[in-house]
Structures are given as C-alpha cells and as structure tokens.
Design a protein around this nucleic acid. Structure first.
Lengths: 154, 154
DNA sequence: TATTTATTGATAATGGTTTTCATTATTAAT
DNA sequence: ATTAATAATGAAAACCATTATCAATAAATA
C-alpha cells in the first residue's frame, strides 16, 4: 500500500468530499479496517478493531460512519439472521469482488462464493431491465443468499 | 374456503402433529391471518390482526408461533431493512407463489414480482448443484432481493 | 379421572442500534 | 492568522424489536 495507516487511498478522499463529507481520522481508520479484512464484520467487531489503532473511537461513530459508507455505496450491509448487521467493503484490496453468501442455518457460518457469476449477471441484466420497465423501478443493487447446512452441520 | 374461521384446512393439522406440535386456537388464527393477506406483515401487524379475532392473544405467542412456522417451512421470514422482520405464508390461498421482492430505498415500499422465474429457476438449479458439490453445502432455501427507487421516489 | 406435558400470556430482561447533547475538530470567511 | 460557521465526535441515555422467565392453563396420555 502506498499510503500510511489511516491515510487511505486518495480517491477515497475525493469520494467523501464529493458527497459533502469530511474524511476524518475515525472514518479513515474504519475504512482501513474494512480494507484489511475479508471477513463479515459486525459494528462491534469494527469498533474493537478500530479501537486498537484509534482508542478514542466511540461505538456511535462507528455506526454513523457505516451508515454513511453504505449510503455512499462503498460498503454493503448484510443481515445473516443472527440479530446483528454485517458490513463488507464493496470494492478494495482484499475484496473478492462481486460475490454472494451461503448461510449455514446450523452454526451461522458464512461462505463466500463467486461461482456462476457470469450466468447470474446475464439473468440479472435481463431481470433488471424487465423490472425497471414493468414497475418503473430503478434498481441500484441486489442481494442473493443461499440458506442451508454446511458440511459440519449435516 | 370449506372450513370455519380459526379451524384451518385439514392438512395444516396433520403438518403440525407431524412436527410434534399442537394446532391450538392461537396458532390457527395466526395461520388464518397469514392466509388472508398478501401483504408483508410484521409480528406486531399479525398480533393486531389476530387480536381482533382472538383478543386473548399475547405478542409473545405470536413470536413463538412464527418461529415454529418458519422452522416448519410454512412461513418465510424477511428482512427489508426497516428493523422489523416480515412474514409471508410460503403457500396458501392468497399466495402469489414463488416470488421475490423489490425494496424501495426511498419509501420502503415492497413490490412482489414473479417475472423471469423460469430463467431464475434454471440458474438456481445449476448454482445449487454446483455449490452443493463444491462446498458440500446442503441448500434448503434462497433469497433474492432487488434494491432501488420506486416510481414515486425517483 | 389423574397425570404428565405442552402452550400460553404478562412481565421483565436483553441487546443491537439511535438519539441527545455538550464538546471538539474542521472548513470557510475575514 | 484569527475568527466565525459548520460538521463530526463520543458518552450516556433512550429506543424498540425480540427473547427469556415463570406461574397459570389447556391438551394429550395413561
């Protein structure tokens, strides 16, 4: 990485400013934490990780920042049914790119998968076009999740 | 409908017994309420509707019953991001059959759609088969949702 | 009928998320 | 630079959907 910890890549700065937000230290560190993991972190997970780097952080700020990041499209918010939201960077160094999740109903394990993306994209394009037309609904995002039992739980 | 209010169709009774549950009055009325709507009711919505027919109902019982119904596969539980779960009968008189949802990020409106189900089913079959094999993950269910802005919000 | 077992509902507790609000940091104006 | 206006922060309290507790009731079984 060509930037110091907490400094963040330059384009992030522009993105924030472009949306009328300031790229403050807490926000940079939250972005760093999200960039350096491929896990599905909860707000508290993020709070704890940020706290190691920037101990003055408050949980409230984490929630507020995540809301902004989701709204800016930099972060995806997921609900895997365990009562707490999970957050993932939508793009970045460790991002595995466009993917979806297998959610184990037994142990709650989450498996990322990127298979059949080509077929999926084809269907989605068709579907999005059709639905946009039929309902005049402007689609910005989609969610696909599979539920079932992982190898250890069946 | 060939059965009285709160009596429910016969097969429901068998289903409950088969799972080791009793088909009590509160449970029957909850099933009735779910059968007679095509909306996306929250637990409280259901509680209020049931309360008109069966005033002794408690909110706790509604939650407990819904949990059972979901676990039995009679009801789907959804999260549309407004902080409360929504419940839909997976099959029944007013059910529109297999469908998915468009979620408006502006006003929270939910639009059911059943388009492209054939193409979707094809992709899902392929995907499920591939993922089951690759990850040894036994898929029981899936979720597809589109997010965006409805006609009134753009 | 007696006895075991499941179900119920009022209440309290839980816990993730939001709101409040005074303080602090950042930007813009002078 | 200094000051004024604005945005961001964090501690604490509030919120609110959902769960756990537990005594009372209903249903199934012996």
């Amino acid at each position: 990485m060509p930037w110091r910890n907490g400094t963040g890549p330059p384009w992030i700065h522009g993105k924030f400013q472009g949306c009328g937000y300031r790229l403050t230290m807490p926000r940079q560190v939250i972005m760093d934490v999200l960039s350096q993991t491929s896990e599905h972190l909860s707000a508290e997970d993020i709070y704890l990780a940020v706290h190691k780097i920037y101990p003055a952080i408050g949980l409230t700020t984490v929630y507020r920042t995540l809301e902004i990041l989701v709204q800016m499209g930099l972060v995806f918010k997921f609900d895997f049914g365990d009562g707490r939201a999970r957050y993932e960077l939508s793009e970045g160094p460790k991002s595995i790119g466009h993917h979806h999740h297998l959610v184990c109903s037994g142990c709650g394990r989450i498996i990322d998968y990127t298979d059949f993306i080509d077929d999926e994209v084809e269907l989605l394009k068709k579907t999005e076009k059709g639905l946009s037309k039929k309902y005049n609904f402007k689609i910005t995002n989609h969610l696909i999740q599979f539920y079932g039992l992982c190898d250890k739980c069946q």
